[in-house]
């Protein structure tokens, strides 16, 4: 077994320091070391997008990184958005538009499109479908996910407007 290495990350605002094998995947680190099991694994080879998290604000596939590669970085996972009683607008939009069925792909979908939603107040259907192309969903036929993303864009934009 190889020597253990220290990994220090900030996840959803909390600092963690763990000592792990250098080959540990980041997704396993998040799920099993930190116990944040909202991030899922669907393919382990970078195609399905279920494991998507935000690394320094950008969506990345946590199954394609080793935990030590995240050392010193800032991570956001699905647990860092809203809570059950107080959903984040994007979560609310997915609920409203029935953008999830089994919900397995959902955390990855949401983390993938969150930056898109924040930057596009009024995206077209085509733009949304393109933004979703890196995430597989087997339940919804994507139709309601597309609608959820459009709704989320509107909701986020109007919140921003209110805040101003």
């Amino acid at each position: 077994m190889s020597e253990l290495v220290k990994v220090q990350v900030t996840v959803n605002g909390t600092r963690y320091e763990h000592t792990v094998e250098p080959r540990m995947l980041l997704v396993d680190f998040i799920r099993h070391e930190l116990g944040l099991t909202g991030t899922h694994v669907g393919c382990e080879h970078g195609v399905c997008g279920t494991c998507t998290i935000l690394l320094d604000g950008k969506p990345v596939r946590s199954c394609l990184l080793f935990a030590p590669q995240a050392n010193g970085h800032e991570i956001r996972t699905i647990e860092g958005l809203g809570t059950m009683d107080n959903l984040h607008p994007i979560q609310e939009a997915f609920r409203e538009a029935h953008g999830l069925q089994c919900g397995f792909c959902t955390p990855g979908v949401i983390m993938s499109v969150l930056p898109f939603v924040e930057q596009n107040a009024n995206p077209t259907e085509e733009e949304v479908r393109e933004a979703l192309d890196g995430n597989l969903c087997r339940c919804t036929g994507y139709q309601n996910i597309v609608q959820a993303v459009q709704l989320a864009s509107e909701m986020v934009a109007s919140r921003k407007a209110e805040a101003r």
Partner: peptide
């Protein structure tokens, strides 16, 4: 949905 959407649903 609230459980699934916040990463609290148990798989």
């Amino acid at each position: 949905d609230p459980r699934l959407l916040t990463g609290q649903a148990l798989f």
